[in-house]
Design a protein around this nucleic acid. Structure first.
Length: 139
DNA sequence: GCCAACGTTGGC
DNA sequence: GCCAACGTTGGC
């Protein structure tokens, strides 16, 4: 199983909205970046990801699970863009802020720090464990 | 609201 | 196929 990180501006699509979708999940559409798309194409059902609020909050707030593998993005006719569906699993007991991630030397290789603008990022097993621990949840 | 970083587009 | 222009993202 692989781990990922999904970025969203909470005034466009927030964690609360994701939770409200329940088991049905929601397609992670609107990604127009090849690297982010390739990451989504690599995802398998059951892969887990962090849900990150950019701009407002700048913190990791929850855990999501991939519930549909890569398929065409219904918000565009352009065949280049695919997306996956994700559903909320559980919130972090304590959100982990970008400042905390940057301050932790164990996390300075994290894509969140090194590829700041990439909206769908891979997360290593090690990073996953560290952030779960910081967030007060079981990995 | 500003601005730096960076990915994409399009002319040549 | 290169590279300048442009648009968008996202931290501050």
């Amino acid at each position: 199983m692989a781990y990922w990180l999904f970025k969203s501006e909470p005034n466009k699509w927030s964690w609360d909205q994701q939770v409200a979708r329940g088991e049905a999940g929601e397609q992670w559409d609107g990604v127009r970046n090849y690297l982010a798309r390739n990451n989504m194409r690599a995802m398998k059902i059951g892969d887990r990801g962090f849900f990150y609020h950019s701009n407002i909050g700048k913190e990791i707030v929850g855990v999501v699970e991939v519930c549909a593998e890569s398929h065409p993005d219904s918000t565009t006719d352009d065949p280049r863009w695919d997306c996956v569906d994700i559903k909320a699993v559980k919130p972090l007991v304590r959100p982990v802020t970008l400042a905390e991630v940057k301050a932790d030397s164990r996390l300075d290789k994290m894509a969140l720090v090194t590829s700041m603008r990439l909206s769908v990022q891979p997360v290593t097993d090690e990073e996953w464990k560290i952030i779960c621990a910081l967030g007060g949840i079981d990995p």
